[in-house]
Amino acid sequence: MAIHDNILIKIRERKESLTPVERRVADYVLANLEEIPHLSIKRLAQLSKTSDASVLRFCKTMGYGGYRSFIVSVSASLGSMDEEHRDPYTDIQPGDDLSVIIANISRNNCRSIEDTLSVLDRNEVARAVQALRESGRIVFFGIGASGLVCRDAEQKFSRINKMCHAYTDGHSQLTAATLLGKGDVAIFISNSGDTAEILDTLEIAKKSGARLIAITKYNRSELADKSDVVLSISTPEVTIRSGAMGSRIAMLTVIDILFAGVASAEYPHVKKYLTKTHDILSGKHRR
């Protein structure tokens, strides 16, 4: 499983939020990936009918310090690009044989996790884990399928005796955000980053002084822009398993990473809680 940045995934996820000029650069890069490492910035600008400054701006928008680091990332990703084309996301078609559905869903879920690893910023993960370790209270906010991920997170962090709660409807979210304070951590889970209820809650939480963490699609969004820490996910663009299926697997993976990061760092302290909760759930208390 590749863990380096995958430039194809980055461009695919961010393309719709690029400026028209940046999109011209993106379109040329995606259509001519193999030749990009051999092009100067001036040549890429000419071929994409833009300018040197536009190419540089595109590179920075995609998260690179300059053109050279962008080229290095393209070169590193070329090997996995072959794999991407051999084994693309596959939508489920009406009438598909059950064996085909089993294979495609499993493969797509694996790809969702792999692609998320390609856009997930390790430094942001470290900052999120540190914030959770220092928190007095953790609250999870999400609507619909994202709310189910919040419930999973609540269950996990409760096992290590963290004070936490999941809020999955608009009214309770607004109330909970109003009561946040410094030392609290609010985690907002939204695939699009534009869910109205989440953004309303975010505005209130931001005034409270709590640390704000977003788990959202690798894209420009109001949620990502206004959060302190952004944990990006990548999801497939297919119809039957669109939003809820693809994002849920990716989001659950990020929650697992955060939980394991906190539990591992605090293991001497939380071991007793893990043991107690394991014993009670496995029925050992009945002996």
Rank of each mutant, 00 (worst) to 15 (best):
V139K: 04
V139M: 12
V139E: 04
V139P: 00
F140Q: 00
F140G: 07
G142D: 10
G142V: 01
G142L: 07
I143V: 15
I143S: 06
I143H: 04
G144A: 00
G144T: 00
G144L: 04
G144C: 04
A145G: 09
S146N: 12
S146Y: 12
G147C: 10
G147F: 11
G147K: 09
L148I: 15
L148V: 14
V149T: 15
V149A: 11
C150W: 12
C150E: 13
D152V: 06
D152L: 06
A153I: 07
E154A: 05
Q155W: 10
K156Y: 07
K156C: 01
K156G: 01
F157S: 03
S158K: 05
R159E: 04
N161G: 11
K162Q: 13
K162F: 13
M163D: 14
C164V: 13
H165Q: 10
A166W: 14
A166M: 12
A166V: 13
Y167A: 04
Y167W: 11
Y167V: 01
Y167L: 08
T168F: 10
G170A: 10
H171F: 15
S172P: 00
S172T: 14
Q173Y: 12
L174P: 03
L174W: 09
T175L: 15
T175G: 08
T175Q: 11
A176P: 04
A177W: 02
T178K: 10
L180N: 04
L180E: 03
K182F: 13
K182L: 14
K182R: 15
G183Y: 13
G183S: 13
D184S: 14
D184W: 13
V185K: 03
A186G: 12
I187Q: 02
I187C: 08
F188S: 08
F188P: 09
I189D: 06
I189T: 11
I189W: 14
S190M: 05
S190T: 08
S190G: 07
N191Y: 10
S192M: 10
S192V: 05
D194H: 14
D194L: 14
D194I: 11
T195F: 05
E197T: 04
I198M: 06
I198Y: 02
L199I: 14
L199A: 01
L199S: 06
D200L: 02
D200H: 07
T201V: 05
T201G: 07
L202I: 00
L202K: 02
E203A: 14
E203W: 01
I204G: 04
I204E: 02
I204L: 07
A205C: 06
K206P: 10
K206V: 13
K206A: 15
K207E: 07
K207G: 02
S208R: 08
S208M: 06
G209P: 09
G209T: 07
G209R: 11
A210S: 14
A210Y: 08
A210E: 12
R211I: 09
R211K: 15
L212W: 07
A214M: 00
I215R: 00
K217G: 02
K217P: 02
Y218M: 00
Y218G: 05
Y218R: 00
N219Y: 00
N219E: 03
N219V: 03
N219K: 01
S221D: 01
S221Y: 05
S221H: 02
E222F: 04
E222H: 03
L223Q: 01
L223F: 01
